[in-house]
Simulated assay, not measured.
Amino acid sequence: MAIRIGQLMHVYPNQYTEYERRHNNLFPEMKAALKDAGAHNYSIFLDKKTGNLFAYLEVDNIEKYNNIANSEACKKWWAYMEPIMDTNPDQSPVTQDLQQVFHLD
């Protein structure tokens, strides 16, 4: 059974187009790292009024997925995205994990 993950992030208002462009050209090694970590059904939605992003993905194993943060592909992606969104000191996106309260199969 897949584990569903929901997160909030934030992109700078003048960077909406660039954020989408970069994701439409996701580094092949980042795409492979996500797949290798068991990520699937990954979508990101933008609220253009606020710059808030809602990310949804499913993973098979949360520990395996969380290890992606240690990969070179992920660190390269974070450095690439850092100038256009809110990030932590390690360049990872500032995220707020959401608690699932309802799901309809």
Rank of each mutant, 00 (worst) to 15 (best):
N70D: 15
L8Q: 09
G6K: 10
A55C: 08
Y19A: 05
M30R: 08
L98E: 07
K76C: 02
A39N: 04
L57I: 04
D90G: 07
Y80V: 13
S92E: 10
V11H: 11
C74D: 05
W78Q: 06
G51P: 03
D97H: 12
W78E: 07
E63G: 00
L104T: 14
M9A: 10
P89V: 04
F54T: 10
N24D: 09
D47Y: 07
F102I: 12
D36Y: 13
F54I: 11
G38H: 09
F54S: 04
D86W: 11
F45H: 15
Q99H: 01
I84L: 01
Y56C: 05
H103V: 09
V11K: 03
L26G: 11
W78N: 07
Q91F: 04
N88R: 13
L34T: 01
D90R: 13
E58Q: 15
R22W: 13
D60A: 12
I44G: 06
Y12F: 15
H40D: 02
R22D: 01
A2S: 08
L8T: 11
S43L: 14
L46E: 11
N88Q: 14
D97S: 05
I5L: 03
L34C: 03
I5C: 06
D105Q: 13
A73G: 02
L8F: 00
V11Q: 08
T95S: 03
A33W: 03
Q7P: 05
E18S: 03
A32I: 05
L104P: 01
Q96L: 15
K48F: 05
A32K: 09
I44S: 12
R22G: 07
E63H: 06
Q100T: 15
D47W: 07
F27D: 13
T17Y: 08
T50I: 02
L57D: 03
Y16Q: 02
M9G: 11
A33M: 13
H40G: 10
H103E: 10
A33E: 11
K75G: 07
N14P: 05
V11D: 00
S92G: 10
A55P: 00
Q7R: 04
N41M: 14
Y65F: 00
Y16F: 15
Q7K: 11
T87F: 12
G6A: 15
H103G: 03
Q91R: 14
N88S: 14
E82A: 13
P93C: 05
N24V: 10
D60I: 06
K49F: 13
D97A: 06
N67A: 01
V94D: 06
T95C: 12
P89I: 08
H103P: 06
A73Q: 02
Q15D: 07
S71A: 05
D105I: 12
I5Y: 08
N14S: 15
L26A: 03
Y65P: 11
A32L: 12
A79I: 15
A37E: 09
T95V: 15
Y80M: 13
R21C: 00
D36W: 03
D86N: 15
R21Y: 14
E58C: 08
A39Y: 12
A2P: 02
A79V: 10
E58G: 09
K31F: 05
L98M: 12
I44Q: 10
K49T: 03
P13H: 09
D90Y: 07
N52R: 00
M1H: 09
N66G: 05
D47Q: 05
Q91Y: 04
A32W: 04
H40P: 02
N14G: 15
N52G: 00
E72I: 07
D86V: 14
N41R: 13
M85N: 00
T17F: 01
D105S: 15
